[in-house]
Structures are given as C-alpha cells and as structure tokens.
Computed example of a mutant assay.
Amino acid sequence: MADEKEKQDMAWRAIGGLVGLVTAWAAKKILGFAWEKATGKKPPLDNDSLEVGLGEAIGYAVLMGVGMQVAQILAARTARKRYNAWKALKEAAKEVSP
C-alpha cells in the first residue's frame, strides 16, 4: 500500500513539474504580448540596464511577478483537480473489476 502511494506521489511530482514548466513558458509569452499591446514597446530584456526607465522596469517586474504567480496557482490547482479525478476513476474501476 505504501509503495502504491509512493508511486502516485512520484507521478504527481512529474505531472506537477511538467505543468509548471509549460505554464511558466506560456505565461511569459502571454504577459509579454500584453505588455507590448499596452505600452507599444517590447518588454525590457534587461531590467538592470540604465537604458530602461526605472518605472518601466518596475512595472514590468510587477506584471511578470504577479502574472506568473497567478498562472502557476491556477494551473497547479486545475492539474491537481484533474489528477484527483483521474485517481478516483481509477479506484472506482478497481472496485468494479473482479
């Protein structure tokens, strides 16, 4: 029984890691697009550069920080719900089979 739980935990870690990577990539693309549409400028690549205004650098950092965190929370919660539903179906199928 403990071995089965350990396998499920490993499966969730793998799924969670993959979801995290995909979410981060997609969120960065979407937030960069939103920044460009809102400001008319490409997102600053180097916030440490003195060529980027302080307000612009801080604004972009806030947008990315909050946006990335919200995306991660939503993706992780959705993935966890789907995984738990899949586990419940799997358990129900075990109980029904002879």
Rank of each mutant, 00 (worst) to 15 (best):
E56H: 03
A76G: 06
Y83T: 10
G16I: 08
W12Q: 12
A92M: 10
R13W: 13
D9N: 14
L74Y: 03
Q72T: 07
G16A: 15
N47F: 02
G17N: 13
N84K: 14
V52P: 04
E95C: 03
P43G: 08
A79S: 12
K5H: 11
A26D: 07
G20M: 09
V66R: 01
T23R: 09
L54S: 03
K90V: 12
G65R: 00
A85I: 08
A14N: 14
W12F: 15
A76M: 10
Q69T: 07
L31Q: 11
W12S: 11
W12V: 12
G59K: 02
L50C: 02
A79D: 08
A71I: 06
L45Q: 12
A76I: 00
A34M: 15
G55E: 02
L31A: 13
A79E: 05
K41L: 09
L18Y: 11
A85V: 07
G67Q: 09
L74T: 04
G16K: 13
I73D: 07
V70R: 00
V19W: 05
T78F: 11
Q69A: 07
G20I: 09
L54Y: 02
A34R: 13
A38H: 10
V66Y: 04
N47K: 09
D9A: 13
L18M: 13
E95A: 15
A71V: 08
G32E: 09
A26P: 05
